[in-house]
Amino acid sequence: MWRIIHQFGSPPWVYRFCDKVIPWLMPITIVALLVGSVWGLLFAPTDYKQGDSYRIIYIHVPAAVVALAGYYVMALAGLVSLVWRVKLADTAMRAAAPIGAAYTAIALITGAIWGKPTWGAWWVWDARITSMLILFFLYVGVIALFEAYENKSAAARACAVLTLVGTVNIPIIYKSVDWWYSLHQPASIKFTGESAIDPSMLYPLLLMIGAFYCLFAVTVLLNMRAELAWNHRDASWLKQLVQGT
């Protein structure tokens, strides 16, 4: 256990890990994204209620799922950074925040576009969309807090505290928004139940969720590698690597 933590705290090891993983994770991600999109757009059958606009589900739901998971990844990195003072966890947290915010933005924008043909309005105060919007603000808050501090290691600790507070609050926020929505529910709006989704529609969705997870991992690793290269630009192990090519 300690050895693993120690390894994660060692920049050369993590740098090489990034270097090794990226070249095969990147193609997998791209292929999965392409296959999933083509499958969802071209080969999955039409939803009999919503027509073809439901095909937005193949980007909307994965983005939303990974955006939420991304916050927990960030909080986990924050915990590691607070407790063990591992600098790399700071880097991971810093890399994850803008990516998570981008995922949330994607979920919101695709949700709005989906809402137009389905509900007749670009924006509806639906429980899920509202929760997503609040999640977006939580991400933006973390990024803004990080940028506000001059001292970046203090910034990382401040963000770690904030993400942990957010982690405790997210389930409460989601539950309360659900509760709020169930009390104010407009009669005409109905969402097709996801439990009843047909396998021919479900498999491409699962593939896309996997692809978005891979994309999240790849982008975090790419950011970490760039960050590491800059932070250790004077370190001999990195110069060796650069000269070795």
Partner: peptide
């Protein structure tokens, strides 16, 4: 065209 929904679907994929 996707039965008139094409613009939304393609816009969503483009914006993603």
């Amino acid at each position: 065209d996707m039965d008139g929904h094409g613009i939304y679907v393609w816009l969503a994929y483009l914006l993603t």
